[in-house]
């Protein structure tokens, strides 16, 4: 009886804490993003962050894309050859990458490469009072630190995903056609026939959504990190875990929406 009450209490507190944090995250992000139009214009800082977050992730996402495409071609060929429909390989690889793997793996790599760095950087700025120093120099830290990073992540991920898709499909073509001997004409023709503009739209909308989510989660957790060295360490781990899980949950929601 007592145990059950304790458990319910624990559950209730956890739920209240979580909704509280969600609300806090939403209001912090919204108030930061609202500053995009307010003077002074932060364009230079948005560009710097696009460079840090987006350009900095190009190599890792290209590499991930290449191997994903190669593995998909191998696995797809194995499965399709059981039905004697190897010619569908191009369509299979392209659809899986464009609709699903490009956005999701791209978001995961963005989290690992740039998201963790965002959280750690903002957390350290808190620990060392740099956020307060900005505030004292009449520079709004939300406009200078949070807003440019969320915007940069939101703009960068769809572009990174497009690159992931191209490289992935190219790598799939190499493995499928040159290594496994699928007819090149069939590979391309089936791909062109089966991939619609709806699939492409699904892909880039997911890219925008995931980029925004990763940006919001990683900036929020860094900004609200307990200002100690352990606090920042914990925040970084938490940001990576929450972003990854968040991306998968949002992926399900968006997929069921667009199917």
């Amino acid at each position: 009886m007592n145990r059950a009450a304790n458990f319910l209490g624990w559950l209730g507190r956890g739920f209240l804490g979580m909704t509280g944090r969600l609300g806090d995250a939403a209001s912090l992000s919204a108030s930061s993003l609202g500053l995009v139009a307010a003077p002074p214009w932060q364009g230079r800082h948005i560009v710097i962050q696009i460079f840090n977050i987006g350009v900095g992730s190009v190599a890792i996402i290209a590499l991930t894309g290449a191997f994903t495409g190669m593995v998909l071609a191998l696995q797809g060929y194995y499965t399709l050859s059981k039905f004697g429909s190897e010619s569908l390989l191009g369509a299979g690889v392209a659809l899986s990458i464009i609709r699903e793997l490009g956005p999701v793996l791209g978001a995961m790599m963005l989290t690992a490469r740039a998201g963790s760095a965002i959280t750690a950087e903002i957390g350290i700025m808190r620990v060392t009072e740099q956020v307060d120093a900005l505030e004292m120099m009449a520079v709004n830290p939300r406009a200078r630190i949070i807003m440019p990073r969320i915007i940069a992540a939101t703009l960068s991920l769809p572009l990174l995903v497009a690159m992931f898709d191209l490289i992935g499909i190219g790598a799939g073509y190499l493995v499928g056609v040159d290594l496994l001997g699928v007819n090149p004409g069939a590979f391309i023709a089936e791909m062109q026939a089966k991939v619609t503009s709806h699939d492409i739209n699904t892909g880039w909308i997911k890219g925008v959504g995931f980029g925004f989510l990763v940006g919001v989660i990683c900036t929020y957790i860094g900004y609200r990190a307990t200002p100690t060295t352990e606090g920042v360490g914990r925040a970084t781990t938490q940001a990576v875990v929450l972003s990854s899980v968040g991306v998968l949950v949002l992926d399900y929601i968006l997929t069921s929406f667009f199917l």
């Binding site: 350290i124 060392t128 009072e129 740099q130 307060d132 120093a133 900005l134 004292m136």
Partner: peptide
């Protein structure tokens, strides 16, 4: 102007 206890320079 403010001088912080641990300087708080932008690193």
């Amino acid at each position: 102007g403010m001088v912080f206890q641990y300087s708080a320079l932008l690193n």
